[in-house]
Write a protein that binds this DNA or RNA. Structure first.
Length: 740
DNA sequence: AGCACGCCGACT
DNA sequence: GTCGGCGTGCTC
């Protein structure tokens, strides 16, 4: 190995020692990867999870692909602190993260962070201490010791200390005594799996007719392999879950992992049990209020491939599966799939992208598909599977509108005589009625009859909602609350405050007046006693311990009420004109879901919808059961609403954490770009907008922390066209697949 | 995201 | 004279 003199010279005087430098994504809102030196002897590759120093802190990051920024001052280079002992993120996962960061214009480090959000799981789980039976007898045999030895002789498996004590009905000291005498040996065992292995053939599928055909169609796409998107579109109670369970079974048979995405609210014990009934084991769970310990176990199970199926909320999409082969997105239309902080994304859309990158099938499921998915189904890009009828002997409820102009309630009331009569009949038969009103509290607005003062939130200027059960007035926007005052704060007059409009509590009052002997229950998220009480109440209702249920949104989902044969919608029009461009779609979905609560177990059932707009397309679609007419119309409306592309008319929708912030951003933008005519403001609740894909027309949502950033961005965008990317976060609410 | 720095208004 | 509000800049 001859060294020539120039080399020697270089190493002595000029050339710095060769250090390996790698890009590392750090969890900071910076546009790209940082560069770090790899210390001697540390083995890292793209995907390795590492700890690195950033300023004064140590952060967890991921070694990334690509070149280092060579403009970086080498003096700034710092070494990687350590590499975690866990499998690196796969190329597929890295591509997915890059894609999502690029599409959502989010800092890639923040996207990557979502994949490694179980810090404790980065080190392998500690071994658990166990006991192995070595045979032999103790010097003195007591009855307790005999019981332990009998058990140990029966089963030749390693015991845990406490497990053996418990099984033998003895105290830990008995076990310790035997261990001290060399009867047992302490061994270290691999930790037990979080969940048992699901068995695809645990029971024969309980499906028939159209369900069976639908399942066969989807199983077929799995057998074919490769990327495909299917949309299961079936009314409530049509057996959608049973159908996609067959897709899961087929994937498991092929030795691949499955992810089931559900809106957080649908991740209930009853779903997990249903899964267990079919597969003999529960799926792994992933959601926001998982205990850190559990989070760690599931994360680790997923990366090692030990956990075969995960049922999770949207964040589960970023779990680094070892061998993912199928994604199910249940309740595909649910707005809970949207994340609207830090990284803005719709998990449903990103799930399709993940399947595309991983080249495996994905199945979207809904009784009321989103307009976007409907469009994709109609255009043939998604393979639509219809389940038009209910499963077994259950029939859809008979639906009718009540025109409130012709059948008004009595003075001071909100229920039409027609609805009251229907309730009387229903409970007379010993069946249950559900009254739905999507409004918590007693009254949405309180005012003073003397001076006209309206109770308004001091923090965010929306109306304060009276809650009689809690004796509070609350702001439903920001959570502000205060005790209900007795006197008007403006003019000081006592006892002249008047409630305007109904909330569920007020409907309960009216119901009690009409049906004093009925067992009435109010279900709303501010039910005293929290989630536990809520669950008990739902069970009680299912058992028949209530005659009339008055509920908000939260009765719309899940739960089967066998005796529920009447659903009354108090105000069907509520939500149709709140400025949300998706108002009609949302209302259609909500009303379909609520009316779908009736008659799920075979009894003849009815739905009555009180409305002031019986001709409205949403109302017509609901009562006629003709969803396709509604979608067709809605699609046409959206097409019309989409503004012309950039260049001719730039159109911006500004949104921010609060409406006030958004207004302030918009003022700045209007000043910065007077030629832009279409700057409009949406509050955080309304954003992002629906967009039907097609051609390259789109709206942008600009989210920014700083006015100056937003203005700079806007100027650059106007100069360079819509492809310009700025330092602000932008949400393009357009079909991600047009970018694939 | 955090954290430091710096610049103007209301206080012990 | 300071304390502290948030606007701005920086982290390999």
């Amino acid at each position: 190995m001859g060294k020539d003199s120039s080399d020697l010279f270089g190493s002595l005087f000029k050339t710095p020692p060769l250090v390996k430098v790698v890009p590392v994504l750090v969890p900071l809102p910076v546009p790209g990867a940082y560069s770090y030196a790899v210390p001697e002897g540390l083995a890292v590759e793209p995907g390795s999870v590492v700890q690195v120093p950033v300023g004064p802190r140590q952060l967890i990051g991921v070694v990334w692909d690509g070149e280092n920024d060579d403009r970086l001052d080498p003096k700034k280079l710092r070494p990687i602190t350590l590499a975690f002992d866990c499998p690196p993120l796969s190329k597929e996962m890295r591509d997915f993260i890059d894609w999502v960061a690029n599409y959502t214009l989010s800092p890639p480090g923040l996207v990557a962070r979502m994949a490694i959000r179980a810090p404790a799981a980065l080190e392998p789980e500690p071994m658990v201490e166990g006991l192995r039976y070595l045979g032999g007898r103790p010097e003195r045999l007591t009855p307790a010791r005999t019981r332990v030895l009998d058990l140990a002789n029966q089963e030749d498996i390693p015991w845990t200390r406490s497990g053996l004590a418990h099984a033998a009905g003895v105290s830990l000291s008995v076990i310790d005594g035997l261990t001290a005498q060399g009867i047992f040996e302490t061994v270290f065992l691999a930790p037990p799996p979080v969940v048992a292995r699901p068995d695809p053939d645990y029971i024969a599928p309980r499906i028939e007719g159209p369900q069976k055909e639908a399942a066969a169609e989807i199983v077929d796409s799995i057998r074919t392999g490769g990327f495909s998107t299917s949309l299961i579109d079936g009314v409530t109670g049509s057996g959608k879950t049973e159908v996609y369970f067959e897709a899961i079974a087929e994937t498991l048979r092929r030795g691949k992992q499955v992810l089931i995405l559900l809106p957080e609210i649908a991740l209930t014990a009853s779903f997990l049990e249903r899964f267990q009934d079919r597969f003999g084991a529960k799926p792994g769970e992933w959601h926001s209020d998982l205990s850190p310990r559990m989070r760690e176990k599931v994360w680790r199970g997923v990366v090692t491939g030990e956990v075969q199926v995960v049922a999770g909320a949207r964040s589960a999409l970023f779990l680094p599966f070892e061998n993912l082969g199928l994604i199910i997105v249940d309740e595909e239309h649910d707005p809970a799939y949207k994340q609207e902080d830090r990284v803005f994304y719709n998990a449903r859309d990103m799930a399709v992208v993940r399947a595309r990158i991983g080249d495996f099938p994905i199945v979207l499921v809904s009784a009321t598909p989103s307009v976007e998915s409907q469009v994709n189904g109609l255009s043939g890009r998604y393979n639509t599977v219809h389940l038009p009828t209910r499963f077994g002997d259950a029939a859809m409820p008979d639906l009718h509108l009540i025109d409130m102009r012709r059948h008004p309630p009595e003075r001071g009331g909100f229920l039409s005589p027609l609805l009251i009569r229907a309730i009387a009949k229903t409970i007379g038969r010993g069946e249950q009625a559900l009254l739905f009103l999507n409004r918590r509290g007693y009254a949405p607005l309180t005012l003073c009859r003397v001076c006209g003062h309206r109770f308004q939130c001091p923090q965010c200027s929306s109306w304060l909602v009276e809650h009689r059960f809690k004796n509070q007035i609350q702001c439903h926007q920001c959570g502000y609350s205060e005790p209900t005052p007795e006197a008007c704060p403006e003019c000081g007059t006592l006892d002249h405050l008047v409630a305007c409009g109904p909330g569920v509590e007020r409907i309960a009052e009216e119901v009690e007046k009409h049906f004093p002997d009925a067992r009435t229950i109010v279900m709303s998220s501010d039910l005293l006693g929290g989630v536990k009480r809520m669950r008990l109440e739902l069970e009680a209702i299912a058992k028949g311990d209530a005659d009339i249920v008055i509920g908000t949104q939260l009765v719309a989902k899940g739960h089967n009420f066998p005796l529920m044969t009447l659903v009354g919608i108090v105000d069907s029009d509520l939500g149709l004109s709140n400025g949300d461009p998706r108002a009609a779609e949302r209302t259609f979905q909500l009303l379909s879901q609520v009316t779908g609560r009736a008659g799920r177990t075979g009894r003849k059932s009815h739905g009555l919808l009180q409305t002031f707009q019986p001709q409205h397309p949403v109302m017509q679609a609901i009562v006629s059961g003709d969803a396709s007419a509604f979608y067709e119309r809605e699609i046409a409306e959206r097409e019309k609403a989409i503004l012309p592309p950039f260049g001719r008319l730039a159109s911006l929708i500004v949104s921010a954490d609060t409406r006030a912030d958004a207004e302030s951003h918009a003022r700045g933008l209007r000043a910065a770009a007077p030629k832009v005519s279409g700057i409009s403001v949406l509050g955080p609740a309304e954003a992002p907008l629906a967009l039907v894909r097609g051609r390259h027309r789109f709206r942008l949502l600009v989210h920014g922390r700083r006015n100056s950033d937003m203005q700079a961005f806007l100027r650059a965008m106007l100069a360079n066209g819509p492809k310009q990317r700025g330092s602000v976060q932008i949400q393009l609410d357009i079909d991600p697949q047009s970018f694939l």
